[in-house]
Amino acid sequence: MSERVLMKGNEALAEAAISAGCKCFFGYPITPQTEISAYLSKRLPKVGGVFLQAESEIAAINMVYGCAGTGTRCMTSSSSPGISLKSEGLSYIAGADLPCVVINVQRGGPGLGGIQPSQADYWQATRALGHGDFHVIVLAPSTVQEMADLVTRAFDLADEYRMPVMLLADGLLGQMMEPVVFKKREENGKSFDKSWAANGHGGKRKHNIINSLYLEATELEEKIHERFKRYDEIKAKHTMAESYMTDDADVIIAAYGSTARLARTAAEKARSLGIKAGVFRPITLYPFPVNELREATKTAKRVLVCEMSMGQMVDDVRLALECKIPVDFFGRTGGIIPKPEEILEKLKGV
């Protein structure tokens, strides 16, 4: 596929995952990620891949552990409550340095919450995706096109750094339809070292062990230090953000994912009223694009963070700006999508 097609975000993501070489998908039904599973159950077996509906989110993420441990590209997807169940497995996957892609099409929480779009899992994704000292790379798409593009990026980053990569989307992006172009993947793409994989040693090497257990504290500390060095490299090389009308802006709206789309509309309306507004949109949530934010807010007197939550990313914005610029917050939660007019009203007050 290389023509423009009209697709739901979830389906575009699923199709792009197959193009990116995802061979196996393990999942468990939950709204609003439903179309990802449905699409892959139809398509993956046709292209020699594996679709397996597991008995639980816990089983699904552990199937990913086993599959990733063989060096095979694989993925799971879920929505907020399901991601909580995957926490254990994600911690083990991070501890065993396995590459995989995890999709969270966020819905409202806590608990069963609701099934409307939400961004209330930012803290979970960037800070607390499981026990122990670890991070996963978190990418936040804002369009259906980006749902497709970033999942490809996610597989490459996962393989390059041997760690889980999460796509943090939301129900709005998952369900909306937009035109999308599937870029042809270069045949001679980067190949990644999989010599660590447990896939039968063939008598050619010592046995490989996929493991996260280190009973010697010094050995475990060393492992974690090594992992954090990789995080530092990712911070230096792979942060991504988009700045819109920020060059001369007095006030910057910082928002990610679908909220950033509404922020753009609000900023454009503000400009028409003579308020010099711009939008800063982080694409990598971990690592947070600190330098990009500082650059985008060079002329800004105020920053307004806008999220579909009670305020989570706002912490990272404040940390990045080191209190040099006042930071305000506007959010709707519980599955309510903020209206551009609401954001504009808040902007006027800032």
């Binding site: 552990n62 552990y65 086993g66 599959c67 996929i210």
Partner: peptide
Amino acid sequence: DMMEASHGRAPAVATG
């Protein structure tokens, strides 16, 4: 070649 699973999940890991 060997893998270490989390508690109880070995059949899921083996499935993968």
